[in-house]
Structures are given as C-alpha cells and as structure tokens.
Design a protein around this nucleic acid. Sequence first.
DNA 1: ATATGTGCAAAACATTTGCATTTCG
DNA 2: CGAAATGCAAATGTTTTGCACATAT
Lengths: 152, 152
Amino acid sequence: MNNEKQIVDALRKRGNKVTPQRLVTIEVLMTFREQHFSVEELFQGVKQRNPDVGMSTIYRTVQILEEMGFITKRNFDDGFARYELCELDEKHWHHHLICLKCGKVIEMQDDFLEVLEKEIEEKKEFIIINHELKVYGYCSDCYGITKGEQFD
Amino acid sequence: MNNEKQIVDALRKRGNKVTPQRLVTIEVLMTFREQHFSVEELFQGVKQRNPDVGMSTIYRTVQILEEMGFITKRNFDDGFARYELCELDEKHWHHHLICLKCGKVIEMQDDFLEVLEKEIEEKKEFIIINHELKVYGYCSDCYGITKGEQFD
DNA sequence: ATATGTGCAAAACATTTGCATTTCG
DNA sequence: CGAAATGCAAATGTTTTGCACATAT
C-alpha cells in the first residue's frame, strides 16, 4: 500500500504540481483504504477539510492518479465510476463477489488464476498485465432470507 | 443461442406485447450474434429498417430483454453500456481479453474457474450464479508493435 | 517566468422519464 | 376495452471542458 509521500513524490517526478487541493485529496484517499469510493464521495470528504475545492478539480486529480496507477477504476453498475487504491507491491489483485440481491461487494484474495494466465499467454498470444474477476450470486445473508425461494 | 421465435414467445408469456418495433429490434439483435453492441448501435440498425422507431423504445426493449436473460450487460469502459446475446444452453460463460493498446476484445471459452467456484461457495458462503473474467494486457498485434518498448 | 492547476458555469453525454397518443391482445 | 407500448421532448445525473485567474516550481 502506498503512503502520501510516495504519491506526492511521484506527482512531482511526473511534472505535476502538488497543490493544497491535491494534498487534501490524497489525504482523504488514504482514509478510504479498503473502500470502493466514488468521485462524489471523495469530493464530500475533501470538502469537509477544505470547502473551497471544486468538483472538477477532484475529477482531474482522480484522472491523474489513475494514469499513475495509484487507483483503479471499478464498475459495479450503480450509476457512477468507483475507484480503489492499488496495492502496487502485490502481484495479484483481489476479486469481487457481488450479491445480486443486496449489492454487497465482498473482497477475495486469490492466486488460482496464475495457471489460467499461463495458458492464456501461450494459447492466445496475449501478454497479461492484469485481470479482474467478478463473481455474481447471493451472499450468506441474502441466501438465508431467500432460502427455499426460486432464484428466478 | 436463441432464435427470434423463442424471444417472441417468451415476451408474450411474460405479458409483454410484440410490436413491430420490437420485432425489428429482435431481428437486428440476431445479426449481432458475436458482437458487443451498444444501444446506439442497435438503434442505428433498427432505424435502417424502420426510421420511425424512437431511441427510448430501444432502451426500453433492451431493458426487458436483459431482465428476461436474453442479453447481458457488459462494461468495457468506452463510455456506454454494451450488451451481448446470452447463450442460455451453455453453462459457463466466455471471458474477455482486452487489449490496453488498441482496445480489441478477444473472447475466450473456458471452464477452469469451476474449481475456484467450488472453493468460493465453501469458504465464503456464497451461492454463485455467474462470473465474469476480464484479462487486461497486450494482444499479439500490439505486442509486435511495442516489442522492445517499456509497457510503462 | 511559465507551465500547470483551479473554480465556476456551461456543455456534453448516455440514459430515464412524463405524458398524450397509439396499438396489441 | 384496457393494459402495455410508443415517440417526443424534457429531465436526469455523471463526467468533461472552456476560460479567466491563481499558483507551484
């Protein structure tokens, strides 16, 4: 997991400026550790600490941070883009179990896909940089509730 | 793979009406067999055969067809929702290799994930209905082009 | 000094909705 | 007939952009 200083240094190295607005944005970002946050949510957090920051500044900063690889865009079909902090030191990513009933997103660490990756690289002549697995179904809470029902 | 008649019958059974607009929409849909189409693209195809159909009608029909399970929404981060025809008779879905350079989407059939699914159902107490795997990297064309370069 | 970033309001964009009218069953 | 569907235009909601001004390096 990256810390604030790493991001700030990387910004400077890239020729980007480190403004107060960006500092606060990064600060708030760090408090989102395990969460999937939307730009709106980030904006609200930033506004609490500095009410004069504009929405578009947040959008622009998020775009840069994504280009730099510090955050990754995710899509959970809830109307807006969500992001999460990347863990650059880990080779493999976690995956998501998404409940079709309540929408809960459960994270899951896994390295099973390494075998599959090798196969793909050989068979398909494709160089793999990253992968993303979403598993849709029913979480234990919702399974309990719907026990006995038909799932469609 | 479903045919037009199956869809039409299912619509009637559900209490939906089979209008000329919907018939054309389904017709065009069938020509999209292997493609990932956007609502806009579907709309253009429909308009060619019946210029008086409105965009919102297409949106509404797509929504119904998705609820019915004939098409599935996909997100390739290109600005709009994409859909593809479901193959209801196949238990497992195909996955997507997405080229980070040219954006090409390569399909891949696979059943490796069955082992992983079992593990998830046990460990996480999660009932799996479906899963979706996206693999990001560089396709053979783009790998050729960028050979020797740094991938960032 | 100058490239870069900012805030604001306006634009762009896909998607949804309200409503009067039409059509399928 | 009556429920459902249609087309249009307007509304929605997120994200982007143009621009004049401000600021980091």
